[in-house]
Simulated assay, not measured.
Amino acid sequence: MQLYRSPIVQLLKRSAKLLCQERGLRIPGGMACSRFEYVKSFEQGDDVLQNVWIVIRLDGKGFHKFSKVHDFDKPNDANALNLMNIAAVAVMEEFRDIILAYGQSDEYSFVFRKETNVFNRRASKLLSYVTSLFTSSYVYNWMHCMSKKTLLYPPCFDGRIVLYPSDQNLRDYLSWRQADVHINNLYNTAFWNLVLKSGLTNQEAETELRGTFSADKNELLFTKFGINYNNLPAMFRKGTILLRKRVKIENSLNRQLIVDLHNDMIRDKFWKDHTELLGKYKPGDYVCELENISTVLKHQIDKLNTNEKQENIECCS
């Protein structure tokens, strides 16, 4: 009887496979068993190059209208900016290979370390995951940051992937984005003060600022409105840098979190202070006092405390 058992079993297996193919079913083990599976051959590979910095930059789609409809403060809305920062933190918490994120206005850039192998470096996977997670986190945290304003319609962000082969290329990219903050924010600060405080129309304010240089705008702000531009919050003037650090707060906390900084990335000092970014990646220490915790750090600490309470409740129940 043993002589016939093996051929019979093999015959039964082949029959079952043919039946699966005919009916478009799946066979045990999760393998597809369908005559339609050939369509997978149309998928194109989109792996990014090895050993390059991967930067994903997201931009708000139609955010001029979005900010107007939702009555954002002009020229800068601190709550709206912190909402962007908190959404970016959610992305960094999901992807440990993001070593730095930089945001300003309605955009955010995420820098993946050169050696990352997330999603086997597939561009479409990386881009779609980061964009969708950032957008959903923005909506999810809206009431936390913008509690006095109702979200009237869903925001939309587009994204792109850019590859930078050298450390200097990466530094120049981040310097470009930070220089953009200064140019735009100085103009917007002058523009909205002319509109809101001097009563000019948008067109009249544009006309007055046309052809002016940075020094002219600084002079206008100081002489007309008593504003020293350099004394405005650094988040408005320099944007927000997110880094992983070992956060130490007096005797109450000592753990790795994501810290928001508003430093100058164009000069060498920033890169000397944070050598882990371009060298062997090991987050450094960040010490702060309890009363000086930022909105971004407080959000993470509150979430940790909530999770720990929930875990204690589950353990006791």
Rank of each mutant, 00 (worst) to 15 (best):
L277R: 05
K13T: 12
T131H: 00
K280Q: 14
Y153V: 04
G30L: 11
A88H: 05
P155I: 00
L151K: 00
L243R: 12
D285G: 11
F213M: 10
N202K: 12
A205P: 14
L58W: 05
K217H: 11
W53H: 00
M143Q: 12
F225D: 00
N292G: 07
C20E: 07
N76I: 14
I98E: 03
L81T: 02
N76P: 14
M92P: 04
M146L: 01
T189K: 04
L12H: 10
N218M: 14
W176Q: 09
V259A: 07
K282M: 13
S132P: 01
M92V: 02
S317G: 13
I249M: 03
S34F: 04
V130Y: 01
E250Y: 02
R210K: 11
A101R: 03
K269M: 05
F119M: 06
L277V: 07
V52E: 11
A215G: 14
R171M: 11
V39D: 06
S109F: 08
F191D: 04
K61I: 01
V181K: 06
D97L: 00
Y38E: 12
N51H: 14
K269N: 14
I293N: 00
L194W: 02
R177C: 04
R244F: 10
E22T: 15
V9E: 03
D172W: 00
G103M: 00
A205T: 11
K17P: 00
P7V: 08
L49E: 11
L3H: 01
M143V: 10
I98K: 01
T135H: 04
V91W: 02
R210F: 13
L200D: 02
A87P: 08
I227K: 05
L277S: 06
L278M: 07
L163N: 07
K303M: 07
W271N: 09
A87F: 03
F222V: 01
L220A: 00
K309V: 03
K149Y: 11
T207I: 11
K282A: 12
C288T: 15
E94H: 08
A101C: 11
L200W: 04
K197Y: 03
Y102G: 10
R171L: 08
D71K: 15
D59L: 09
